[in-house]
Design a protein around this nucleic acid. Structure first.
Length: 262
DNA sequence: AACTCTTCCAACCGCGCGGCT
DNA sequence: GAGCCGCGCGGTTGGAAGAGT
């Protein structure tokens, strides 16, 4: 049996707060404070659960909330604090007066993460190509053969072992090796997989994508991969399809892969 | 103008922790 | 020590708004 719900759900409002509800909550807290969130909605005449009231107050109605866009300084502070503290949003919020953990979390996921990825992409793209040069026997034509024989399309992230259909949870960039070992290991795993030495799902090798250029960069290698138009990207945040394809070609050309196809 | 896609953010959900009995 | 309860946290989601076609 699971844990009992935090409040009686039936008959309670959910979703966006109305101005009337806001008024009720503000005036109640101004008069009585919020010593007991669970009892508060009833006493304030609100058809909400205590948890919802607390969230509304903390994230939106509190008088010391600073609204509006984050300044550059605030963004840099968040990035620095995130490096130190990780996803401890409340701890980060405690160091940014007027900002809430929820707001910081949202800003991180919508703006800052991309910003960092973009920077890391610029910084790291060159060494990955160099690493793959060392693994120039990665022969992607084997992939085409396997695709033909298995009659299906391999889909994988750039940098992940080819044919890796199931994406495993990704370590954060800080947890990944930033050295050449990672990309060489990935390239080796590609080859091993093509040689049938590993299974098609892979758990151990991190992909470049998450903190490399975008969160969900996927490159589909279709069975007739000679056709340039068959390289497509989906759910891309960041570089355009053209950018991705250019980069992908660079990887293959530099690593000696796809020479037959090209 | 109409439709689709993407982005953003307020709000929800489930879990863990600590205090109390 | 066990069980309950309330609170706080972090992850996730739904839908509105904006951008693109």
């Amino acid at each position: 049996m699971g844990r009992a719900p935090c409040c009686e759900k039936t008959g309670l409002n959910k979703g966006p707060w109305t101005p009337e509800e806001d008024k009720l909550l503000i005036s109640y807290i101004q008069k009585h404070g919020h010593s007991n969130w669970r009892a508060l909605p009833k006493q304030a005449g609100l058809l909400r659960c205590g948890k919802s009231c607390r969230l509304r107050w903390i994230n939106y109605l509190r008088p010391d909330i600073k609204r509006g866009n984050f300044s550059i300084d605030e963004e840099e502070t968040i990035i620095q604090l995130h490096e130190m503290l990780g996803n401890r949003w409340s701890a980060i919020a405690a160091r940014l007066p007027g900002r809430t953990d929820n707001e910081i979390k949202n800003v991180w996921h919508t703006h800052l993460k991309k910003k960092i990825k973009q920077k890391q992409y610029t910084d790291s793209s060159q060494h990955v190509i160099t690493d793959l040069e060392q693994y120039s026997d990665l022969n992607v034509s084997k992939l085409s053969e396997r695709e033909k024989s298995s009659n299906h399309t391999f889909t994988g992230s750039v940098g992940s072992p080819a044919g890796c259909v199931t994406m495993s949870p990704q370590p954060s960039f800080s947890e990944q090796s930033s050295s050449s070992e990672t990309s060489v290991a990935m390239a080796k795993n590609n080859l091993d997989m093509l040689n049938g030495e590993v299974t098609e799902t892979c758990e151990m090798f991190p992909v470049i994508d998450e903190y490399f250029w975008s969160e969900h960069m996927m490159v589909e290698l279709t069975s007739n991969s000679q056709d340039e138009s068959q390289y497509t990207t989906t759910d891309v945040e960041g570089p355009s399809d053209d950018d991705c394809m250019g980069f992908w070609y660079n990887l293959l050309i530099n690593s000696g892969g796809f020479q037959e196809s090209l």
